[in-house]
């Protein structure tokens, strides 16, 4: 893995945005996340890496409480966002999800027009004062999703008629349109070509200015390129968490090292 282009980044001390401690997730009898504690900083890109089925998506879904929608899932432990427990009784998951946006592993545009796909979130949250406002929001979101040039002439065409990669970028645009504070991305680039991937990575880098981004990826290069912090998951445990540069060059755990060098997974 010597082709990793590790960029030197100034990693100054930042505020903690998400703080998880002793999180356990069960799907019925399956213990999918075992005692995970992690502190995710604001204005930082954090990458989750690990072999398939190790619980990356599961942990990501804990952060916006999407696991609530799975009947068999049980979550315990504490997750705080800005110091507030998101599993507190007073928290309405709907309000939480407006604050914590998500891009799913499989592209899932609404079977509506491209415009409506992006405009849906701002509409239900009342972010636009009028039609022109909404048009602006949609255009900005589509530009950030690196898809504006491809769809600007067919905003009324169905979002489901786009190619897989275009659909994924549409979903990214849809997620950023609601201006979340935290953006969770589950393998956002798995269906994208290198050019679109590059554009999405640029977007992620840009989002870092104002948000905290958590990205799950199977591409070591991508994790190295876009993230400042990396967490390595293995069989439901979070094995190692630290500076991306350090994880990739000098991991502490032998499992991390073997995964990064392609020996397990």
């Amino acid at each position: 893995m010597d082709d990793l282009r590790l960029t030197e980044r100034s990693v100054d001390q930042k505020e903690i945005k998400i703080s998880a401690s002793n999180v356990q997730v069960y799907y019925g009898e399956t213990h999918a996340i075992r005692d995970v504690s992690v502190e995710i900083e604001d204005k930082t890109v954090t990458a989750f890496i690990g072999p398939s089925g190790c619980g990356k998506s599961t942990f990501l879904r804990c952060i916006n409480r999407m696991n609530d929608t799975i009947d068999t899932a049980r979550v315990s432990g504490d997750i705080l966002i800005d110091g507030e427990d998101i599993y507190d009784k007073r928290v309405d998951p709907v309000q939480l999800r407006a604050k914590v946006g998500m891009v799913f592993q499989k592209p899932n545009p609404f079977p509506k027009s491209i415009y409506d796909n992006v405009a849906y979130g701002p509409r239900i949250h009342g972010l636009a004062r009028n039609k022109a406002d909404l048009d602006d929001i949609v255009e900005r979101a589509l530009r950030r999703g690196a898809i504006w040039n491809e769809v600007k002439d067919r905003l009324t065409a169905p979002g489901t008629g786009l190619s897989g990669g275009q659909q994924q970028r549409l979903c990214i645009a849809r997620a950023v349109a609601t201006e979340p504070e935290v953006l969770l991305m589950d393998e956002p680039c798995s269906a994208l070509d290198p050019i679109a991937t590059g554009q999405v990575e640029e977007l992620i880098d840009e989002l870092r200015e104002s948000y905290s981004v958590v990205i799950v990826t199977h591409s070591m290069q991508q994790a190295a390129r876009v993230s400042q912090k990396t967490a390595f998951f293995h069989l439901g445990n979070m094995v190692e968490f630290g500076e991306t540069g350090k994880i990739f060059t000098n991991p502490e755990d032998s499992r991390t090292e073997s995964y990064i060098s392609g020996r397990i997974g």
Partner: peptide
Amino acid sequence: PPSIRAAALGVGASKMQSVFHHVLPL
């Protein structure tokens, strides 16, 4: 498909919004 419900919930729609705006029309 459940992914439609997840998509709606993911952008912060309530259960009812996800049902009435997306699931029911389909």
